[in-house]
């Protein structure tokens, strides 16, 4: 099983939006930023877009550093992930998927050449160790 001991997670500063499903559906991220819908009522946009407009008077829009992320080379990711995810990887690009990896709630953002792995920041050290160990952590 492949292992990787050069992965460094850095805190991902994003705009985090909690709003209604309808308002979240209408959100558009500016060019050059990535927008992922992490839950029916939550959206993450990075780099942050503090002045984004949301069609909901009650929306919570905060700058947030809850997650840490690291880019994985696509070849490594596609070899490593089948050993660590009990869920199927998307085949289209770009794509967003999320699920548990080593008991850590993990989000994956797939581009053509690389994958952004996003984990809760407090678990970044555990995930880095897991990657380095090649499986068990």
């Amino acid at each position: 099983m492949p292992a990787h001991n050069h992965i460094e997670f850095t805190r991902l500063i994003a705009t985090r939006i909690a709003t209604t499903a309808a308002a979240a559906d209408k959100l558009h991220a500016p060019a050059g930023s990535v927008m992922i819908r992490t839950a029916i009522d939550e959206t993450l946009i990075f780099p942050p877009v503090p002045d984004i407009s949301v069609d909901d008077d009650y929306a919570i829009i905060i700058e947030d550093g809850s997650y840490a992320s690291a880019w994985l080379d696509i070849d490594f990711a596609l070899r490593w992930l089948p050993y660590n995810c009990a869920w199927e990887m998307p085949t289209v690009r770009p794509a967003f998927a999320q699920g548990m990896i080593a008991d850590i709630a993990t989000k994956l953002y797939f581009e053509q050449e690389r994958v952004l792995m996003i984990v809760p920041a407090p678990y970044a050290a555990e995930m880095a160790a897991h990657l380095a160990h090649g499986g068990h952590a």
Partner: peptide, 11 residues
């Protein structure tokens, strides 16, 4: 209930 909730514990 119509609410918005964000768990900010990690951030």
């Amino acid at each position: 209930m119509d609410i918005r909730l964000v768990n900010r514990t990690w951030g």
